[in-house]
């Protein structure tokens, strides 16, 4: 009966396409006894105040910021990857770049989207490139590292805005900003390569570093040419 019905059932047509390998994790998940997960851990996150949860996550993000600022060979940034930090940095940078009016009034709109797209699209391209070159890093780990390494550039953006507020735009302020942006650009590139280089084949590091360099260069250049609206 079941077989006869299956022949003309559109609903089962979808099911029959499903290969058995896809079934397995679902079954496995169901079979996992509830007690094997740290029960108290679950309870604590359920019961604790929202403030604690947010603070704990923010602390984790802050910890990774420190890792980027002191780029020593550590796998903390790779092991527990998250995309909250990159999102925070990306939004901050985009908002800071928002107020610029280099060309016209309409430029304010695309600016935010442009920064956002450049950062995410760029990281995805770099990640795909490193995968294609034979890197052993996972997709989101790489996104995480590249996102966190924008931190020096975001700091540079903050400093640049301060400089622009204090000093009227002239050659002096441009030189100061140039130095700041160059330093932070170098820092970002250095930090990201320190994290990413281990996962790459030894002889191909230069090929992986080049797009990273280009990526941070474009962002740095955007920061340098930023001029606030009068």
């Amino acid at each position: 009966m079941a077989e006869v019905d299956e022949a003309n059932k559109p609903l089962f047509a979808g099911l029959s396409d499903v290969s058995i390998s896809e079934d397995i994790p679902v079954e496995g998940d169901i079979a996992v006894p509830v007690t094997s997960r740290g029960a108290d851990d679950e309870f604590s996150t359920l019961d604790e105040p929202v403030k604690d949860t947010i603070l704990r996550d923010l602390k984790a993000v802050g910890n990774k910021f420190v890792h980027v600022m002191y780029p020593k060979k550590s796998s903390a940034l790779l092991r527990d990857w998250d995309l909250w930090g990159p999102l925070l940095l990306c939004v901050t940078l985009a908002l800071l770049l928002q107020g610029g009016s280099a060309d016209s009034k309409e430029d304010g709109g695309p600016q935010f989207a442009e920064v956002f797209v450049i950062i995410w699209f760029g990281s995805v391209i770099i990640t795909l490139n490193s995968k294609l070159l034979g890197g052993t890093i996972s997709f989101f780990q790489s996104l995480c590292v590249l996102g966190y390494c924008i931190l020096p550039l975001t700091v540079a953006m903050l400093v640049c805005r301060l400089v622009l507020l204090l000093v009227s735009s002239g050659t002096a302020s441009f030189v100061v900003r140039l130095i700041i942006v160059t330093a932070s650009f170098g820092w970002a590139t250095f930090a990201s390569t320190a994290f990413l280089a281990d996962s790459q084949p030894v002889n191909r590091k230069a090929l992986v570093v080049y797009p990273v360099f280009l990526f941070y260069f474009v962002i740095g250049w955007m920061i340098l040419t930023f001029s606030p609206s009068p």
């Binding site: 009966m1 099911l15 499903v18 079934d23 079954e27």
Partner: peptide, 9 residues
């Protein structure tokens, strides 16, 4: 009756 269904589905 059809035992090969995706349980998740």
């Amino acid at each position: 009756g059809s035992s090969f269904e995706d349980v998740g589905e």
